[in-house]
Every structure is written in structure tokens, then in C-alpha cells.
């Protein structure tokens, strides 16, 4: 028991001695590791630079809606041209119907007893 305790104490002292005498890394190793650190270090984030004032046409372009608006306008233009060049059958019929429809203009004679027949003159 005494022997065991003595060994425990001696071993404890030995561990303490090892803790107090850390194995120092050589300077060359420190330098190599520091070089690795610098070589592999990511670049610092760049601060956002102040943007130049946008050009006048860019303001106008953005005011009109930019590319999304332009693409919609272009699509509508192409579709209109195509319908004009090659209209579908149904569309021609509908156009004739609307264009040949007799126009009725209602006229109300506000002074029926007067000398002038305004309703007749109006027509």
C-alpha cells in the first residue's frame, strides 16, 4: 500500500514536471507554420466602393421598367405585327361585323314646336 502510494506520488510529480517543461517548437517550425497561415489566409473583404452617379439614360430606362418592361413591349409588338400580316379567320369576320354594323345616332328634339326641325337637320 505504501509502495503503491509512493509510486502514485512519484508519478504525479513526474506529470507535474512534464507539464511545467513543455516541449517548445523550434523557431523554424513556427516560421513555416506562419508562412502557411499567410499563404492560405483569405483576402480581407473589400469595402463597397462609392458608385458613380448613374447616367441620365439609365434613369429613364429604369423609370420605364428596365429589361422586364422592354421584353414585354417587344413581345406585344411582334405579336401585333404578326396578327396584322396573317390574321386568324375568326378575327377577320369579327372585324367585318364590327365595321359594317349600321350606326344609329339617337337624336332628341328638345324644342319640337319650334320653326326649325333640329332633328331632321341633325340627320
Amino acid at each position: 500500500m505504501t509502495d503503491h502510494t509512493s509510486e502514485e506520488t512519484a508519478l504525479g510529480d513526474l506529470f507535474a514536471e512534464a507539464r511545467e517543461a513543455p516541449v517548445a517548437p523550434p523557431a523554424a517550425l513556427m516560421a513555416r507554420i506562419h508562412e502557411d497561415a499567410k499563404r492560405l489566409q483569405p483576402a480581407p473583404p473589400r469595402l463597397a466602393s462609392k458608385k458613380p452617379a448613374p447616367a441620365r439614360w439609365r434613369d429613364i430606362w429604369q423609370g420605364l421598367g428596365g429589361w422586364p418592361a422592354f421584353s414585354g413591349l417587344a413581345t406585344a409588338t411582334v405579336a401585333g405585327i404578326w396578327l396584322g400580316v396573317n390574321p386568324p379567320v375568326g378575327m377577320a369576320l369579327a372585324a367585318e361585323t364590327y365595321l359594317e354594323y349600321e350606326t344609329i345616332t339617337p337624336v332628341i328634339d328638345l324644342v319640337p314646336e319650334s320653326y326649325f326641325d333640329f332633328s331632321a337637320e341633325a340627320l
Partner: peptide
């Protein structure tokens, strides 16, 4: 990781 050179030295 944010590019601080002093941190590289201190960590080393």
C-alpha cells in the same frame, strides 16, 4: 478567416 494578418500571427 476575414483576412486579419495579426490573427494569423497570434494563432500561430
Amino acid at each position: 478567416a476575414n483576412g486579419d494578418a495579426a490573427a494569423a500571427s497570434m494563432l500561430t
